[in-house]
Design a protein around this nucleic acid. Structure first.
Length: 1014
RNA sequence: GCCGGUGUGGCGAAAUGGAAGACGCACAGGACUUAAAAUCCUGGGACCAUAAAAAGUCGUGCGGGUUCGAGUCCCGCCACCGGCACCA
């Protein structure tokens, strides 16, 4: 590629314009109340200057990229795909008259810099800064129109002091189920015995009450401490969040993880499970992404059911609802949690299970506990004790990886104990098995083998009773003789036939004790002396039995989520330290306390050695002077996970330099608010009889208007950030309930071998390569021309040359060939020290460009192009927008004379895609014709004139019986009758209709004619 | 297994239910050139036929259906990609 002649002097043009934009601060976005320099292109476009209020500013448009983690490897050609898409849109929206916010920053905390520090002793900050410098240089070489004055890095103390500040907001808040939102901890309602003033003067009692209050309060905070089983990764020397563990391995590095009991900071994301779920309906994200979040949140509706124990009397008849204070009808997660927790302290008198199919209760033939269930030891009979112990040991030895890997084969052990099915009063065995998870529901299930695959498998293996209680309205797959089995044929079946009455009608249902049916159907076999579900459809049966259980205090309707609270601490150095200290109370118990806000930022200490300590404490514990405070309190030595900084960076961009708040109120409201000012975009005097696009009184979008990034963040960053945003919203710090209104995932760019790009495959193409060989504009164009943004597509170097050639054609459309040859010769002779940029002046415009009126054909081609490019940009269809410009250029290459006005319009269309080339030619067009060039970046977007696209004669396909037989030319005004006649008279059509009767003629005006003959 | 997405030339891909394959790559032929590169022009789904063509037939993963007409809508499958996965 490099051996061939350069298509155009991009090597001079691109740095030239990048410098101009930089010097002008051309892409700086202005906040309400900010001083706008009178000569800034934005000020000139909108006739603004000085301090401008939100109401005076045009409508905002916030275009955000997922900010990168600056790794040492630099950018490859896959990275700028999303950045290119957002930049094109940012430039387009700027031309349309929006106040565009388009920022970039660095997600810079992270493990690689720390691991490098462990190896070499180089401070992670230094590594981070070097990597940022590389990334910034590469990103800037691509000519993106970022507002660099808002650049931020999560590792910067000016930034992370606010990350710590937000953590304190979490710490000092609780979730009020009654108002369904986060509130300051001062509003917390204490249970009866703990309310002030205390009605005692006994000092010990008072002390204990104070302590209980503190424990209660600390247990309610949105950021709380929990001794919990966590994922410990030995290799990384830290714990990981659920979301960071994939198939029993760490997401980063793929190292094994094990369960370990540790004291950890948690964020109460579960309180927001329902909002995170339902608010997905209010935002414009892809279905697949929403679905991933829904699956992760994992809502299921069902009931808790109480099974009493054979041979034991229940000490108290209680349900979760009655055993704890509750403000709502449906018990919330927190209360369930507390209830389940409390069962470990109570005697084993009954077992609560969670089920989504309470309608199958009559078919529950055994109970299974998770091996870790607190009742197991107490329930196990002496005969079974050895077997149960052996099983528990075996399970504990298995890593979770093995537990899921071996999922195929069910294992378990009988405890020797029996429970009583609350509706049948039958004695049913209690087993333990590792297919029941301690961490979900109550850690116990009622097994209904006839209607649950897993229970069915287990029952078959251990020869447990299978009892069918739900009939299917369709034959079981194995009974279906063929797929066309009709409803009426049911009676022909030999087995499983049975009828029930639904809505007064007798219908067949199919039941089986030898096969599993998990679908919904009709209940049967489900009645006792008090309640009957027989003949009820599943949904009704669920309702009826749940109501009955509630009335008997044997159950409670409930909602369960898979989502767990977010494990928020890491045993690392290179992260935000917690603004927390630990103290020891008079009772000898240690407790935590928040640092005052004015002490932030809390900087990490400087270390010589970044490894964890020998005792397994985090590296921060090495800094004794930092950890131990004069008053005897001790600092928290964990740090926050990498996700913390990325949870709110999009808010800091709005007001990146604010020293008194994480974001200013008015500024936040302007850029994120749903009711920011309406646009008042002016329509300047049209250039060529064209009007500029008038945005009119279009209201703005709440939150970020467009967020582009990879799918890998579907359940991590995107869920965490939504959670933080919702807490900040509840506490009144932000004005919208959702941060990202529209989100698009760019598809991955594969290597030329159709494999994902990776070092080990050796198929990585660094961005610097195409930038040097064909220039940034060609790279940008190709990134978009490959295919639709969301699709996965392979890189093809030959394809890059195609768009590079296109830019060469554009160049040659505009410049005089002889002058370019002169330029090239001069450049060869010039020494390196000479200013090559000045040589560009040798290149002259093509003489065919004249300030003359365009022909109708020229106007038509131009306006077709404006229409297509505009519509495709609105739909993010960059690839077809580019092909429309190619079509235009292919035609314009044949023109003898090139009207100046059209040449300008074309450059405006090209500018978002190839801004350097467009700026260069734009400036030349103006200077050559003695005009002053307004900034192309802010030139009003051209508007197409539909009237110019109308043809006088059009070609109409003629079909006979749906097959194309001719294409006829008719006037655009041809009537239906004209078309019919013309079609019938076509010489090519005649042979197909002669001697036949025309039964019908379908005429679609301006589209086609179809003759139906018999 | 469940959820989501995608299947169209040699390749990347286009097509509000109305001319399938725009645009680009690769390829072939031609012009320019001492020559090459670059550039410009022309060609192209498959089959059948032919000296060459015209005409014709078949074509959007597979099988059905709706419609005057289906890449597009409906039903049933298959393959690939991504996610989740003993969540009761």
């Amino acid at each position: 590629m490099s051996s061939s002649r350069r298509q155009y002097p991009f090597h001079l043009i691109e740095p030239k314009w990048q410098k101009v934009w930089d010097e002008q601060q051309a892409f700086r976005a202005f906040n309400p109340g900010e001083e706008i320099p009178a000569n800034h292109p934005f000020a000139l476009r909108h006739k603004l200057s000085g301090k401008v209020s939100a109401a005076q500013l045009p409508a905002k448009f916030y275009i955000l990229d997922m900010f990168p983690y600056p790794s040492g490897a630099g950018l490859h050609v896959g990275h700028p795909e999303g950045y290119t898409a957002t930049d094109i849109l940012a430039r387009y929206k700027r031309a349309q008259g929006f106040n565009v916010l388009h920022p970039m920053g660095w997600d810079a905390f992270g493990l690689p810099a720390e691991q490098y520090a462990v190896k070499t002793g180089q401070h992670p900050r230094q590594t981070t800064e070097e990597n940022i410098a590389t990334f910034k240089r590469q990103i800037q070489s691509l000519g993106f129109s970022y507002d660099w004055s808002r650049e931020l890095a999560t590792t910067d103390p000016d930034y992370f002091q606010w990350t710590q500040w937000i953590f304190l907001k979490f710490y000092n808040s609780w979730f009020n189920p009654k108002t369904n939102k986060a509130e300051p901890i001062e509003n917390l309602k204490y249970p009866a015995g703990l309310r002030l003033p205390f009605l005692t003067s006994d000092k010990t009692e008072l002390k204990n009450l104070e302590l209980s209050r503190r424990n209660f309060r600390d247990g309610k905070r949105l950021a709380y401490v929990k001794e919990a089983p966590v994922w410990w990764c030995e290799e990384l020397g830290t714990v990981l969040a659920n979301e960071e563990v994939i198939d029993g391995k760490s997401e980063v590095g793929g190292f094994p993880v094990v369960r370990k009991l540790m004291r950890q900071w948690m964020l109460r994301i579960t309180a927001y499970a329902e909002k995170l779920l339902t608010d997905l309906d209010t935002i414009d994200w892809s279905d697949s992404l929403k679905e991933m979040q829904r699956n992760w949140i994992g809502k299921s509706e069902g009931a808790y059911v109480c099974f009493s124990l054979e041979g034991r009397t229940k000490s108290v008849k209680e349900s979760p609802k009655n055993s704890i204070e509750s403000d709502s009808d449906i018990i919330n997660l927190e209360e369930i949690d507390a209830f389940i927790q409390s069962s470990s302290e109570r005697k084993a008198d009954s077992i609560w299970v969670f089920t989504t199919r309470p309608d199958t209760l009559f078919g529950a033939t055994y109970v299974v506990l998770a091996p870790e269930h607190p009742f197991v030891n107490e329930l196990t009979t002496d005969e079974q004790r050895a077997a149960v112990q052996a099983y528990k040991t075996e399970v504990a030895k298995k890593s979770d990886l093995q537990r899921t890997d071996l999922a195929k084969e069910k294992t378990g052990v009988f405890t020797g104990a029996f429970a009583v099915n609350p509706v049948t009063d039958e004695k049913i065995p209690i087993w333990i098995a590792d297919y029941v998870l301690a961490s979900y529901g109550t850690g116990a299930i009622m097994a209904v083998p006839a209607h649950d695959e897993r229970d069915f498998e287990f029952a078959k293996k251990f020869k447990l009773q299978i009892k069918s209680v739900v009939g299917s309205l369709k034959p079981f797959p194995s009974l279906a003789i063929n797929s066309t089995f009709g409803y009426d044929d049911f009676s022909k079946l030999k087995r499983g036939e049975r009828t029930v009455v639904i809505n007064g009608e007798e219908v067949f249902v199919f039941t089986s004790e030898t096969e599993c049916f998990v679908g919904e159907g009709v209940a049967w076999n489900s009645a006792n002396s008090e309640v009957s579900l027989n003949d009820l459809p599943t949904a009704e049966a669920k309702q009826k039995i749940t109501a009955w259980l509630e009335e008997k205090n044997l159950g409670k309707k409930t909602i369960n989520y898979k989502l767990r609270d977010w494990l928020f601490s890491r045993q690392r150095y290179w992260g935000e330290p917690f603004p927390i200290v630990w103290k020891v109370g008079p009772d000898g118990q240690s407790y935590h306390e928040a640092l005052p806000e004015n002490s932030l930022p809390l900087l990490p200490p400087t270390l010589e050695d970044y490894k964890p300590t020998a005792t397994g404490e985090p590296p921060l514990a090495r800094a004794k002077d930092w950890v131990n405070l004069p008053d005897g309190s001790v600092r928290e030595t964990n740090t926050m996970p990498q996700w913390a900084g990325s949870c709110w960076y999009y808010l800091r961009y709005l007001d990146a330099k604010n020293n008194s708040a994480f974001v200013g109120k008015d500024v936040e409201n302007y850029w994120m608010g749903a009711d920011s000012p309406k646009s008042k975009v002016q329509s300047p005097k049209p250039d060529v009889g064209l009007e500029t696009l008038d945005i009119g009184l279009k209201s703005t979008t709440p939150g970020v208007d467009l967020y582009v990034g990879g799918t890998e963040h579907a359940v991590l960053h995107l869920l965490y950030a939504r959670f933080w945003h919702k807490v900040l919203f509840d506490l009144g710090y932000v004005s919208t309930p959702e941060p990202f209104f529209k989100l698009v995932n760019q598809g991955m760019v594969l290597g030329e071998d159709n494999q994902k790009m990776s070092k080990s495959r050796g198929n990585v193409i660094p961005v610097d390569v195409p930038v040097a060989e064909v220039g940034t504009d060609a790279l940008r164009l190709y990134e978009m021309f490959m295919g639709p943004l969301e699709m996965v597509k392979p890189w093809n170097t030959k394809g890059v040359e195609g768009v590079y050639r296109f830019l060469g054609r554009v160049w040659r459309l505009f410049v005089d060939e002889k002058s370019e040859t002169a330029f090239e010769q001069a450049e060869t002779l010039a020494t390196a020290t000479q200013r090559h940029g000045e040589l560009l002046e040798l290149i002259l415009l093509d003489g065919g460009i004249m300030d003359i009126a365009a022909t109708p054909a020229q106007l038509k081609a131009m306006h077709a192009c404006i229409k297509k490019v505009t519509e495709d940009l609105d739909g993010l269809r960059f690839n077809t927008a580019i092909s429309a410009m190619m079509v235009f250029i292919n035609e314009a290459m044949t023109w003898q004379t090139k009207p100046l006005a059209l040449m300008k319009i074309f450059l405006q269309l090209l500018a978002p895609f190839a801004p350097h080339l467009a700026e260069e030619l734009w400036a030349r067009l103006h200077s050559t014709f003695g005009q002053t060039a307004p900034s192309l970046a802010y030139a009003p977007w051209p508007k197409f004139d539909a009237a110019l696209l109308v043809e006088s004669e059009i070609e109409i396909p003629v079909q006979v019986n749906g097959k194309l037989r001719d294409v006829i030319k008719v006037s655009v005004n041809a009537t239906q009758a004209d078309l019919e006649t013309a079609a019938k008279n076509s010489e090519k059509v005649k042979p197909f209709i002669e001697g036949k009767t025309i039964k019908k003629i379908i005429v679609v005006p301006k589209k086609m004619v179809n003759l139906i003959v018999g």
